[in-house]
């Protein structure tokens, strides 16, 4: 990564055992102020999700409180129209968002990698077919597709159905990026060298080329996670999936069903909305730092 194009002297490497050293990528990310902000914020969300049972003041499924209470010492953000504690639901909701985001993001990134990289590397007829398929998915409007898929999906509307729907609809843009990137990498001499050394197609794609586009893959993955989190909230808000799941999206759904805006329950709208915005912001800020990994000029000195 430290390809210095100027007439510079060779780099001196630190002399510490490999395992004890802070990984280079982490140092670069941490130095970037935006990325540091994003990572701290994301860490807070992860802690919130992991320690939800201890952090939440009540059981999020305990509907035994008076409905529509305003914020108070007992109920920090009040209660919902059905008598649930808003704060507890918001804390537990982080689990759903992160789970859907990470798993659906991984699925769509894997599909994007497999299709984009194979198309880009093979070229010719295989590329024509795979690119056509990618373009097809790109032009079909995502939201109606997701709604339709969710309606016909077996296994009736749990979180996992939402994950699968988001995973298999969100890969097309990423596949295109990866295809474009591999087109510039496939003609490098070291790829030709690997071919001369007898390596097979898949080894070349995933072991020779992929490590050289790590930062692009990571940027794509983080973007996909953010997209999946948003999509989950959107689907839940329009009532697709199980409305009894506790997530920020269903909180918004119920708030809208209860007419929270009319009855003055602003906290029920603002809290999940703000958390969603903060989480996607955190991911975006981390991506600024990942850019610096691949482009030394963006690093903060």
């Amino acid at each position: 990564m430290s390809a210095v194009t100027l007439d510079g002297p060779p780099a001196v490497t630190a002399r510490r055992p490999r395992l004890l050293r802070t990984p280079r990528w982490f140092v670069i990310l941490w130095r970037n102020k935006k990325a540091r902000f994003g990572m701290v914020l994301l860490a807070l969300f992860l802690l919130m999700a992991a320690f939800a049972p201890w952090l939440a003041p009540y059981d999020p499924r305990d509907g035994g409180f008076a409905p529509g209470l305003p914020p108070s010492a007992e109920h920090w953000f009040g209660t919902t129209g059905r008598g649930f504690d808003v704060a507890s639901q918001a804390i537990w909701g982080a689990r759903t968002s992160l789970l859907v985001g990470l798993v659906a993001g991984t699925i769509s990134t894997l599909i994007a990698l497999a299709i984009g990289m194979t198309a880009g590397y093979l070229g010719g007829f295989a590329d024509e077919v795979l690119s056509f398929f990618t373009n097809l998915v790109l032009v079909v409007p995502t939201l109606p597709l997701m709604v339709t898929l969710a309606a016909y999906m077996p296994g009736g509307g749990g979180v996992w159905m939402v994950i699968v729907v988001i995973g298999i609809t969100g890969w097309a843009g990423g596949a295109r990026n990866k295809r474009a990137q591999i087109l510039t990498l496939r003609n490098r001499e070291y790829i030709q060298g690997a071919r001369q050394a007898g390596d097979g197609i898949f080894r070349i794609i995933f072991r020779e080329i992929a490590p050289n586009m790590t930062s692009l893959i990571v940027v794509g993955f983080i973007g996909a996670v953010g997209g999946a989190i948003g999509a989950e909230a959107g689907l839940a808000f329009i009532g697709i999936g199980d409305p009894e799941t506790i997530s920020w999206g269903t909180m918004l759904y119920w708030a809208s069903q209860d007419g929270a805006l009319l009855t003055g329950g602003f906290a029920r709208l603002v809290v999940p909305g703000l958390l969603l915005a903060l989480l996607t912001t955190a991911l975006t800020f981390i991506n600024f730092g990942v850019d610096a990994l691949s482009n030394p000029h963006l690093r903060e000195q």
Binding site: M1, A3, R188, E189, Y190, Q192, G193, Q196, E208, P211
Partner: peptide, 14 residues
């Protein structure tokens, strides 16, 4: 084959 550019002929990550 021996390539022209020794800076491009070896995979930077290997």
């Amino acid at each position: 084959m021996v390539f022209q550019d020794p800076f491009a002929a070896l995979n930077p990550t290997k």
